[in-house]
Design a protein around this nucleic acid. Structure first.
Lengths: 204, 204, 204, 204
DNA sequence: GATGAATGAGGATTCATTCAT
DNA sequence: GATGAATGAATCCTCATTCAT
């Protein structure tokens, strides 16, 4: 087996540098997409040389993969945090409202990342796997959270997956008020209504 | 103003040729994505020369734009057709089931196109506009259809947009049974249930 | 299987162009070695663009491989030709003298090619195979020629291989009078003497 | 004059370190060739840092040059040693056999070094000079040895050069039994026969 | 109108060498 | 003295686009 020449940063300075590359990649991929961003630009934006980029990452795609992980966490962290603060009795409408709000905020900060991720996830095996695993992880995590809250739902995985997608969708739309024929406050209320109904539905 | 050298095909043979390029582009973009498909391949698959491709299209992106339109119609046509055959009294569950079935079929044939489209739609202004307009058109069209069927719904645009997204999402997932922890028959029923509730909801 | 994009030239102009690339590669590889010659230089020397070079050759190494074949023939052709003119009775000393003369001439024209070939033949599998096969072909060809001349020699393959090497060696040395402590006329006579003895030796 | 920053090691530890670099370079150049070995690898194999390598050697080529000297001695030492043990009367066949055996052994250990050396020796002036001088030294040394043994040969330099080359050639071939159509035991006997005849020939 | 060979700018990646710590 | 992270010039190769035939 070939010995990898990629540095695994342990030192604080190294970790910072690697993070700078990821941050630079994130911004550029979002702004211009993967294929329209070149490695020199990433290096420049990170304030280092191309050579250094390549001492932290195998190749350009490896940067993209790490950017994806970074982006994923950026989205989920604040949501998970929100659930830590819950206290009984639950006000479903308020909780869901907050989650959606968080999601919208995140999307405002990273509109493009999501689409870029989706795009690469079909033409690239590795990206496909990463996004696939991420979705799975998120759905199962939320199912677990609901379970811990004592909320028992029939077909929980399927429902959460649907809900997760709806929230994603709304956030993406609302973040930029894409369509004029849509009132985004109304839309949010419709989605919240839908979610509450789904969660409350214990079958017939 | 710059004189355009792009031919607007009037002759039958010319139109056929242009369509062959679009079809070839569609297949290749779906299979490998925009950036991993080159113009020589498109020409070869269309059975003509690169030079000829450039007499019908300004550049590679122009092909993509036309492919997008072609793809959009491919998705919508069979759905619209379905609505032509409706007769009273409406069996909502059956109608929605059929629509979803059509959507899934379409996705099985063009998994990648959708994602590729999304991807380009953020890094490219022209693509962004096209997809934006397409969504708008579809939502308004369905709202109109419902109206013609005598179904009056509060917040109809918002609801249809949500529903449209849910169907898209389900089709995409189901077409390839992406996740093992999801039972796609169960998921479909949940989505149908959700849609019926949304449509039936006339406010309080 | 991947369809190769390498053009197989049939047209006269194409063949000429491919030959120009080979000739350019030959001159440059000889002058500066494989690793110190870049693809742009080859293209420039051939009077075409880099892109065109890559439409005739898979990669830089493929050029080298063809250069090798070209070089091999350049060496052998005039030798084979010499044997066509032989008439009885054979004057061994004269024949061998002539062969050596031809070999020296060739080496004067391509000193470096030989060494470069040897060098690459150990670090590169494909080059190794090519040179290996070439040697084999040459030895067997000469064995055949001797046989046709009615000259029967014990251990013919082994002897010819030894002789072939000695001639190569001498040519390489003599072409540039490398060493001052060597008298190359004397050396040639010693080699001819050796060859004659070897050929004349029918065992004990 | 430019002040050289290259350290001339006097301390035992320093000399050991320099030798480690040479040994590492030798192994790597043999295995992968000059251009496919990088300085980091050499440093790693030598168990030191790149920076340190550059405090002992001006540049990469300087390492190669020293490796060449090291390699040369590795080949010659055991041969010279063999001659120390000779006693009268000489059994030529046995002596030559032994020399060839030693040469084959050396080649089995350093197949590639020889070719790599040849390769560089044409594209690089310094390497050319080194190999040239080495050959000269060897031939003159053997001439001297023969002289000391009381063996007087006409055209001694030329003959030894021819013989030296034949032994080199045989060793290289035999070490790896390159060709199937050659019987290497037979070939060795032919070469020994040739050498004996050459040495025994005192002119007419 | 059609062809497809030719172009060459652009991009990913490597690696000899330096120099701050 | 030693280190090894950082540099960035240099190289191979691709491909959208043009244009002579």
């Amino acid at each position: 087996m070939e010995k990898s020449n990629i540095r695994e940063p342990k030192q604080k300075r190294s970790i910072e540098k690697k993070n700078k590359i990821i941050e630079a990649g994130y911004l550029l991929f979002c702004e211009k997409g993967f294929y329209n961003t070149n490695t020199v630009e990433i290096a420049e934006k990170a304030g280092i040389s191309v050579g250094t980029v390549y001492s932290y990452f195998e190749d350009k795609k490896a940067i993209f993969l790490e950017v994806l992980k970074y982006y994923s966490e950026k989205i989920l962290m604040p949501m998970y945090a929100e659930f830590e603060t819950l206290s009984m009795p639950l006000d479903l409408h308020e909780i869901i409202s907050k989650i959606i709000e968080i999601s919208v905020q995140t999307h405002m900060f990273s509109e493009a990342a999501h689409e870029e991720m989706l795009a690469m996830s079909h033409s690239d095996k590795d990206v496909k796997k990463l996004t696939h695993d991420f979705e799975e992880q998120v759905v199962l995590k939320f199912a677990e959270i609901l379970c811990e809250l004592g909320i028992n739902i029939q077909n929980v995985n399927e429902k959460i997956h649907i809900i997760y997608n709806a929230v994603e969708f709304y956030s993406h739309e609302a973040a930029f008020h894409k369509h004029n024929f849509i009132n985004y406050d109304v839309m949010r209320e419709e989605i919240i209504k839908m979610i509450i109904k789904m969660i409350s539905d214990r079958g017939y």
